[in-house]
Simulated assay, not measured.
Amino acid sequence: MATNKNGEGTINALSFYKCLADETRLKCLLLMLNEGELCVCEFVSALALPQPKISRHLALLRQQELIQDRRQGQWVFYRVNPQLATWATNVLKNTLAANPEFIRENLAKLNEMGQRPERLSACCP
């Protein structure tokens, strides 16, 4: 990802909004923003979608550099890219704040999930 003079990532607005136009990708982004980071099994539980579909959407978000991943043993955790341009991060934050009901059911499913993977370190904001 190219960065601007403030060290933030630059993203093409059209690419950004195309990613947000898909309900699954938007929910993934908002869930990550709300939770800090999540693994694929948590997305599968929260969204009630098959793992291959979730993985395809996460791969696209990663390719567009909207998210980052980190490996921890058998787990791969995903989070919103901390280098994302401020304007793009603000769009996500404002969307979440103005539309909490959009992911309310998904958060409930996530919270009902049995054992969730433990994280050795807290996610970076």
Results as ranks from 00 to 15, higher is better:
T24Q: 06
Q74P: 13
F102G: 01
N34D: 14
L92H: 06
Q63H: 10
I103E: 06
F77G: 00
A21K: 15
L84R: 04
E105L: 11
W75R: 09
R62Q: 13
Q63W: 06
L47H: 00
I54S: 11
K5S: 15
L47Y: 05
Q63C: 01
L110K: 08
S121A: 15
D22I: 01
V91P: 03
G9P: 04
L33P: 05
T10G: 06
L31C: 08
N4E: 08
Q115D: 15
A98P: 04
G73H: 05
Q83I: 04
L14Y: 12
L58N: 03
D22Y: 03
V44A: 03
W87K: 11
A13T: 12
A97Q: 10
R62M: 08
D69G: 07
L66K: 08
R56L: 15
R70N: 08
F102Q: 09
A85H: 10
E118S: 10
A59C: 00
L29Q: 00
G7R: 01
A97T: 00
C123Q: 11
A46M: 03
Q115L: 15
A88F: 12
L96T: 03
N12K: 11
T24G: 03
C124V: 13
P117A: 03
L84T: 06
M1K: 07
K5H: 14
L49W: 03
I103G: 00
K18R: 12
K18N: 13
E101C: 00
K27G: 07
L66W: 06
